[in-house]
Design a protein around this nucleic acid. Structure first.
Lengths: 341, 341
DNA sequence: TTCACAAATGGAAGCGTTTTCACATTACTG
DNA sequence: CAGTAATGTGAAAACGCTTCCATTTGTGAA
């Protein structure tokens, strides 16, 4: 493998000049630059990132910590991150921490701190304050997506507001018997998302002076199949079932629709369903939802990060609210006549 | 940041001994090892991977090239890879190349060759022979999953055999009017998967002396929504519609089931549907399928790779067939009486 | 007891870049 | 036209480890 030395020799320049010519930093005459380029190409020179990183302290690599790439939201965000990073010439080191807690706790120490990454993006993952401080202490910008991250910059949609909007949509249609499917409490520990959306839902209900019935507040694991099972129980009761369901994710909304179909309930005539996400499958089911453009959130995170790395400090600790878009399709309608106010 | 020098000083050992003690390589007395450990812990010493890589030539990092983590199969494989790699103390650099061809072509040169990774796992992605040779030339083992990779080790299920088995299942139930939904030809370019499965289907049909009707050979993009649209066209014809559909993926099978429901077709009474994958949603739809354990494929790939890195050369160029499991649920049954042989 | 050999250790030479520093040019300013 | 500033360049010092080599010490075989 040819090194920069060989390029220097062949081009008749010094190692230093070749380095400057090839990296574009520092002043080099046009002629030298061209000579260096030509020699490098001729030798098939490929700079060693490790050597460059060691010498410069920059790694051109960002770490992405994510609960599971096998889930809709996370993989969408990762796609956005990946594309943006790749274009900027950065590598992306993926830490898919799954549900394994002990493993997760070690990620930080074992990997993130080892000067391997220039920055960290944490998706829906709570790091405690000391962990964040550790990272910031070694000058590694962090941005969090979808979860609160004390001390770091974060991007997230207005979960409470979005939930309120979804609930209000149902309320305005005339529904009063509204159920809510949210994530299991275990997810709350990290994302605080189920709780926040639930609060939004309750706020809307209270504002409309509608009762929040405990037996209609159910949970699932954010997946279609999980919500399907939950919704079957919810809708199985032959008497006194809700006329509308607000699911905290599109996948759970779809699970609900599938369960409703099993019972011969027509959506939206017999049951209105609304979700949050903007899932690709929404169209197939005619699902009314609030699109949160997960991919775009990933892109924005990288842009923030890169700006931070370039010194244009993206004022750390800033919390950014990502915009959402209401998508009305045909899974929501006025309630059945018997249930109208 | 403390360096290994500081640890040496504090422990009263030499830098060399500390390095050996902490890495576990070379012979160090139990006492020295303990002293080094203690000093490192006290200082909060975190070794620099870049320096280590530069000095040793090993990076403890493997590159994973994947078309899109937003798709079921790929993200499942990545999960398997990630978990296994993490346990082995390796980093995983993700190259999510999406559909962007120019970007994809540059990944290799821009990233993979730069001595950044010890090995490469390519998922359903065809590298041409020269690219593979380049990687092998710099001693980077490659393993391919789900696609043919000349010159590298590969893992894949027996696509033709699996397709044959799926088709035979339908044939044995008595179906003769069988349609096949496979991936668009554009995917064939990389994975050669749609084509291979289609050939398996055709082989089974021919063996049973059943006609392969061109208008019943349709394609979609491997997703539920894509197959849904395709299946609506396929099943929309009121007369002379197939009594069974073999979809090349579970997601496409599910899309087909949803389309069938739209037309009031009961599955399996009016239409049998079978897929390939082992998708989590299969259970909700009672889908008969052939489970290919995508996660397990990822795990196996890493094991092969690590064995290769440890010198136990996993004989490169070896092609491994990954086992599949037939899962019979209730989306397949004998054809309607009118269509029975 | 002596010799050969293994185990344990430290010194120092890399690994392949970037970057600082010093110096020589060349180009401006008034 | 002197004097200052910018520009282009090379030598060499980092960067923070691993590992080769040489040396010392301890052990069992002869």
């Amino acid at each position: 493998m040819p090194g920069i030395k060989d390029v220097a020799e062949l081009s008749g320049l010094s190692v230093a000049t070749v380095s400057r010519a090839l990296s574009g930093k520092g002043s080099v005459s046009a002629e030298s630059r061209e000579r260096a380029r030509r020699a490098a190409a001729e030798l098939g020179f490929i700079p060693s990132y490790h050597a460059a990183s060691l010498a410069s302290g920059r790694t051109q690599n960002v770490g992405v910590v994510v609960p599971s790439v096998h889930r809709w939201y996370f993989s969408a965000v990762v796609e956005g991150i990946s594309a943006t990073l790749l274009d900027a010439g950065f590598d992306l080191t993926l830490y898919n921490v799954s549900e394994d807690d002990h493993r997760r706790r070690n990620i930080l120490n074992d990997f993130l701190l080892r000067k391997r990454v220039d920055a960290v993006i944490a998706i829906s993952l709570e790091l405690d304050e000391t962990e964040i401080q550790q990272l910031l202490a070694i000058h590694r910008p962090i941005v969090g997506i979808g979860g609160p991250l004390a001390g770091a910059s974060t991007i997230r949609i207005d979960d409470a507001g979005t939930a309120r909007a979804a609930a209000n949509h149902l309320i305005q249609l005339g529904h009063s018997k509204i159920a809510h499917i949210t994530g299991h409490a275990m997810y709350d520990q990290d994302f605080q998302l189920p709780g926040t959306r639930q609060q939004g839902f309750e706020a809307a209900m209270n504002a409309a002076h509608l009762p929040v019935r405990p037996e209609w507040m159910v949970t699932a694991d954010f997946t279609i199949q999980g919500a399907y099972a939950t919704a079957r129980k919810l809708l199985g009761a032959t008497s006194d079932r809700p006329t509308a369901v607000f699911a905290a994710s599109d996948e759970m909304a779809i699970g609900t629709i599938l369960a409703a179909r099993d019972f011969g309930l027509r959506v939206p005539e017999d049951l209105s369903v609304i979700g949050i996400d903007g899932h690709e499958l929404g169209e197939v089911f005619g699902l009314t939802t609030i699109d949160q453009d997960a991919r775009g959130q990933g892109t924005l995170a990288v842009e923030l990060l890169l700006a931070g790395l370039n010194g244009n400090s993206a004022d750390p600790g800033h919390h950014r609210s990502y915009p959402t878009e209401f998508v009305i399709r045909n899974s929501t309608a006025v309630p059945p006549a018997a249930d109208r106010a």
